[in-house]
Computed example of a mutant assay.
Amino acid sequence: MSLKTTLTIVESQTQAHTTLNRARLFYTGAALILLLLMLIGFQQFFLHGKAYPGREIAPQIRTLIILHGLTMSAWIFLFLIQPLLIVSRNHRIHRMLGKIGAALAACIFVLGLRAGIEATRIAPPDMVIWGLTPKQFMAVPIISIVVFVGFVAVGVWNRRRPEVHRPMLLLATLAAMPAAISRIESVSALYRGTVWETFLGPPFGMLVVGALFLFIKWLLTRSADRWYATGYAVLALISVLIMRIARTDVWDQFASFLLR
């Protein structure tokens, strides 16, 4: 093997190693951003034990909301810890926490469904949320939590394929973020009353963050992440459809079934 060939191989391996480290840095940074957004969006919950925008949590669902909030918070913290464990080569702990994460996702699914249904059950019928009645708005948390579990399932199934596993879990976490981001007044005020509010509703801010992640990942690695891009396109399409589905007779009948 010639010296030139050897140098080319070494250079290629160095570039691949650098790209891999930047990808790991990206997921750690993304997790930190989502954690910060969650803490800001739910600051009333974390600091005062209250619902947005500072009202008391209804006694009928208080325990349920607290459990859902705690499990979702645990998920975000776990999502931050996992890439750090890979960087530090603690693969065994990473795999062990992965099993805990799968069980946590199942709990989030059950609690999220119940929270969406029970919150709708006690909401005043004439209440309007993002231009929707309570029964219509229930489509947002219900469909979002189903999408969350769907991305988690794909990520867990591909746990031995990091190029699929990591973006799917990031997309799962993003799918659960509209509730936090839409509660950040400085963010929601930017599009409240515009066509974006009618078109996308609460997921708008989450989709902007997701698009920024896609751009930042490209800047760091100089390569297109087709798995993340494809998953993001699916997430965006579902987000657009949620506001349409919520106003259909089919959803009204399904929501009535859930509320019985």
Score class of each variant (00 low, 15 high):
Thr173Arg: 01
Phe42Val: 00
Val128Cys: 00
Met177Tyr: 04
Leu78Tyr: 09
Trp75Arg: 04
Arg89Leu: 13
Leu47Phe: 15
Phe215Leu: 15
Arg226Pro: 01
His17Asp: 12
Ser12Val: 04
Arg114Leu: 15
Leu170Thr: 13
Arg89Gly: 02
Leu39Ser: 06
Gly210Asn: 07
Gly231Asp: 11
Trp75Ala: 11
Glu163Met: 06
Ser73Val: 03
Ala246Arg: 03
Trp218Ile: 14
Ala172Asp: 03
Ala103Ser: 13
Val164Phe: 09
Arg166Lys: 14
Gln136Leu: 05
Phe148Arg: 03
Gln82Asp: 03
Phe26Ser: 09
Met168Lys: 05
Ile33His: 00
Thr5Gln: 12
Ile117Gly: 10
Tyr228Gln: 03
Phe148Asn: 02
Arg166Phe: 07
Ile129His: 05
Leu170Gln: 07
Phe204Val: 06
Trp227Thr: 13
Ala23Gly: 10
Ile142Arg: 02
Pro125Thr: 13
Thr230Cys: 08
Trp218Thr: 11
Glu56Gly: 02
Ile129Tyr: 12
Asp252Ile: 00
Ala255Pro: 04
Leu190Thr: 13
Leu174Met: 13
Ala172His: 08
Ala74Met: 12
Gly231Arg: 08
Leu132Gly: 00
Leu64Asn: 04
Leu241Lys: 01
Ile242Arg: 05
Val147Ser: 02
Ala189Thr: 13
Ala189Trp: 09
Gly101Ser: 09
Thr18Arg: 11
Ile245Ser: 01
Gly41Val: 10
Leu200Thr: 09
Trp75Lys: 04
Pro162Ala: 13
Gly112Asp: 08
Ala211Asn: 02
Met1Gln: 06
Leu214Lys: 03
Met138Asn: 11
Ala51Met: 11
Ser239Lys: 05
Met127Cys: 00
Leu67Glu: 06
Gly98Phe: 10
Gly41Asn: 06
Gly150Asn: 05
Thr18Val: 15
Met168Asp: 03
Ala180Tyr: 01
Asn90Asp: 07
Thr63Asn: 11
Met96Asp: 03
Ser2Tyr: 05
Val208Lys: 01
Gly150Trp: 09
Phe79Ala: 14
Tyr232Ser: 04
Leu32Tyr: 04
Trp75Phe: 13
Asp225Ala: 03
Arg22Glu: 05
Gly116Lys: 09
Tyr27Asn: 07
Leu174Phe: 05
Ile65Trp: 06
Leu212Asp: 01
Ser188Asp: 03
Gly150Pro: 01
Ala224Leu: 15
Ala211Ile: 13
Leu32Ala: 15
Ala74Leu: 15
Val10Thr: 12
Ala175Tyr: 05
Pro59His: 12
Phe254Lys: 03
Gly112Ala: 08
Phe148Ser: 01
Ile57Asp: 08
Met38Lys: 03
Arg222Leu: 11
His17Tyr: 10
Val149Asn: 00
Gly205Ala: 08
Thr198Asp: 12
Thr230Met: 10
Ile100Met: 12
Ala30Gln: 07
Leu111Pro: 03
Leu39Met: 15
Trp227Val: 13
Pro162Gly: 06
Ala139Glu: 10
Arg160Ala: 14
His94Gln: 06
Val164Met: 14
Arg166Thr: 11
Ala176Asp: 01
Ile145Cys: 04
Arg161Gly: 00
Asp225Trp: 02
Asp126Phe: 10
Val156Ala: 13
Lys4Ile: 12
His48Val: 00
Arg121Ile: 02
Val240Gln: 00
Ala105Val: 08
Val209Thr: 14
Pro178Thr: 11
Phe257Cys: 00
Glu118Asn: 10
Ile108Ser: 08
Thr18Asn: 08
Arg22Ile: 07
Pro178Met: 10
